[in-house]
């Protein structure tokens, strides 16, 4: 590689490119974002589903993430309703994962000799995914730059072997590395190029549009109906017999069912932003999504990728 880690990156995209190159070099499959709306990189099936079962796995990818309640019409210096996470998942977690992670910080221009990097206890739990793990938030000079988790359970299943998961909040990390105070001022591409674009040039307008829609315009009745439909469809998919009459093969549809789970989860987030979910209802909705996630996990471990060994009779 001709990557120059001694120099500081100059743009948001350069930081992403360096992370991609670094993790590719460490042997990860560099994947693309999942093509659905999700709240965090963890929802990508490359993490949620692939952390289940016994098969080794190593993937890294950027995941656009949406958190409707965090919308601030593009005005807050570091809050966005749409942002990017960089996600790494390696199963089984390698013994030198901390060192590999620190290497990635060096790759994006953080000089270990000048900065104070700390691993501060932060246990991770996703009630919607029925998942938890132990790990840290990683601090660089007092700022949280990543989440580092050893998955213990996902979708109600104990993880054997354990996956190591790294999540970088890309905008925040990049702002720190580039020395930017307001996210909208951050150079998106190289500021020296003829058509230099800032993060604001790319996203300020969409932040405004989505903030308005998320908070005030989204049709809650339609959303409520979509939630119910996704929930029903997920259950219906999973009820289908494993044997496909058309091909004569055993096809467990874990991924299509999981898509419906993701959809329900995102619709719940939208409903939450619209303020139509009361405190008591909240728990009930989270529980309904968790039920879907668990059912999908149950299905995934019955698939080949989930470690299921085909029986001779099939």
């Amino acid at each position: 590689m001709t990557r120059d880690t001694a120099t500081k990156p100059r743009s948001f995209q350069e930081i992403i490119l360096r992370l991609q190159a670094y993790w590719a070099e460490q042997g990860c499959a560099v994947m693309q974002p999942y093509d659905m709306e999700v709240g965090a990189g963890t929802f990508h099936p490359a993490t949620t589903l692939r952390s289940l079962g016994s098969k080794p796995w190593a993937a890294a990818y950027v995941q656009p993430s949406r958190r409707p309640t965090d919308g601030r019409y593009g005005e807050n210096p570091n809050r966005l309703q749409h942002y990017y996470q960089y996600q790494v998942l390696i199963k089984p977690s390698p013994p030198d994962l901390q060192a590999l992670y620190l290497g990635s910080l060096q790759a994006i221009g953080i000089d270990m000799a000048l900065h104070d990097i700390r691993f501060v206890e932060d246990d991770w739990e996703s009630p919607t995914l029925g998942a938890w793990g132990l790990g840290w938030e990683v601090w660089c000079d007092g700022m949280e730059v990543s989440q580092f988790t050893y998955f213990q359970q996902v979708g109600g299943h104990d993880c054997h072997p354990v996956s190591g998961e790294l999540t970088y909040g890309l905008e925040r990390l990049a702002m720190y590395v580039l020395g930017i105070d307001h996210v909208m001022d951050m150079p998106y591409n190289d500021p020296q190029t003829p058509i230099a674009l800032s993060y604001g040039d790319v996203f300020r307008q969409t932040e405004q549009e989505y903030s308005r829609w998320n908070f005030d315009v989204a049709d809650t009745e339609v959303l409520l109906r979509h939630f119910e439909e996704a929930e029903a469809e997920c259950a219906r998919i999973l009820e289908a017999p494993h044997h496909d009459p058309k091909t004569g093969k055993r096809i467990v549809m874990a991924h299509p069912a999981y898509d419906q789970c993701i959809k329900a989860s995102h619709i719940f987030n939208l409903l939450d932003a619209r303020g139509v979910i009361s405190v008591t209802e909240r728990q009930a909705y989270i529980g309904r999504v968790r039920t879907l996630a668990k059912a999908c996990a149950d299905a995934f471990v019955l698939t080949e990728a989930g470690g299921h060994v085909a029986e001779a009779a099939e």
Binding site: P95, P161, V162, G164
Partner: peptide, 18 residues
């Protein structure tokens, strides 16, 4: 108070034991 497994092993410790 809380312990974990890591990698492909079965030992439990507060964080991976090296």
């Amino acid at each position: 108070p809380k312990s974990m497994r890591w990698g492909a092993g079965s030992l439990r410790w507060v964080r991976p034991l090296h």
